[in-house]
Design a protein around this nucleic acid. Structure first.
Lengths: 227, 227
DNA sequence: ACGCCGCCTTGATCTAGCGCAACTTGAGGC
DNA sequence: GCCTCAAGTTGCGCTAGATCAAGGCGGCGT
């Protein structure tokens, strides 16, 4: 779980085409893996989208920026998640490795062109896109109408579902990342977590504020039961 | 443009299956049209999704509610837009006619099952879903990180693009609808619009606060140029 | 060991937007 | 015409969350 304090970028492909393509005939064949060091960029908003990605290990954040630096994190991608799917051929988010992350690169033969050819492929793309859409829809309700405590509770419930192992919720991301995901400030996130700890809903363990044990999922869900 | 002050529900199909199906063999054949009176519900969240819809005339709002009544409007659908597409077979939003609205009903043979059969069909569903997803992604940035003035400016720009005719932006929805779309209160929307009017960015016409002329699109865009 | 640094927490204050209320205006009914 | 009602505007506090600031803590490099 230890991170490098000074993230040193691995030699990553500056343009994705530098990766080459070993078995380029079938567009859904996994080509190769690549590892990104903590904090490094996987691709930037508005870059041409030549690949889609599947997380093998690690965590990825996907976000948009306003020109003055305000950031909205759209999603965290964990092992098994696919990301980077777009229709316009251009990425709509910047993605970065939250921790050291290994991804599988999947060549993207222009999805718009492929639409009519392979129903099975397109069907799985549709399913993935639907999954992303459902998440975005739920997140709009959170961002538009939920209080800070409700947002943090919803976040914990989501992360508990997605990445709790051995009873411990080991968050890979910082308070700032959480804040930018929930449309709050890092201080408000910290205060909400402290509040939940005081209420006995959760506890920090291992002398690590990212290692959380949920003591009362019932009560936690109660803070988001207005849903 | 005149509306009934007291919305009287037309006899609408309580369950969509009551609509019957004339040419049910091809799932993408338009079956029939239906008209909903201003304010009436088209379908509710968690209802089974038997049809998808295309707006022929009018405007539809799509939203989620929290149990205490807080509402987040996800999208406004105008003529040409398709809505009601979902994968789980269950609607994730409630939709209502903002004005008297006529829709085309399209029978939805379980999309999950259809996925592998007709690539062209699935491809067009994928395109629609991608379009919805892109909108949702942009809206998350707005809801999570933009100021009230930026939100209202972005709203006006979106609506200007989608429904300005003859130089007049004729908004079909109330201030409350706009507020619930932008994650604000109706008062804040009203104040922001007044502020933009004082600045000469827009003007109300026809003695109707929903009829807006944009006097300075350049300056208006400036309030959302942090994007 | 020591100091630095990134991350987090906590306290104090500030403010954008909310909530409440009064008032205006236009449309429809009679 | 007059009344009612829905929708919108505006003013005036108020508060949830932002902002500013101080301090703690653990890991890492030297």
């Amino acid at each position: 779980m230890l991170m490098h304090a000074t993230p040193v970028s691995l030699p990553r492909p500056h343009s994705l085409s530098e990766l080459g393509m070993s078995a380029a005939s079938n567009p859904m064949v996994s080509l190769r893996e690549f590892t990104y060091r903590r904090g490094s960029e996987i691709y930037g908003e508005k870059e041409p989208a030549e690949y889609i990605y599947q997380v093998k290990s690690g965590t990825v954040r996907s976000y948009k920026l306003l020109s003055d630096g305000r950031r909205q994190i759209n999603a965290f991608h964990i092992p098994g998640d696919t990301f980077g799917l777009t229709n316009g051929g251009v990425h709509r988010f910047t993605t970065e490795a939250v921790t050291d992350t290994t991804v599988r690169l999947i060549r993207r033969e222009s999805l718009d062109a492929v639409a009519g050819s392979d129903g099975t492929l397109t069907g799985s793309l549709l399913h993935m896109t639907m999954t992303n859409l459902r998440h975005a829809e739920d997140h709009m309700l959170l961002l538009g109408r939920k209080t800070s405590l409700e947002r943090v509770a919803a976040f914990l419930i989501e992360m508990d579902r997605r990445l709790t192992a051995a009873g411990v919720l080991a968050l890979p991301m910082s308070r700032r990342d959480i804040a930018d995901y929930l449309g709050l400030t890092l201080e408000t996130v910290s205060r909400s977590l402290s509040h939940l700890r005081e209420l006995g809903v959760l506890a920090f363990i291992d002398n690590n504020q990212r290692h959380i044990v949920l003591m009362d999922r019932q009560q936690l869900a109660g803070f988001d039961r207005r849903n």
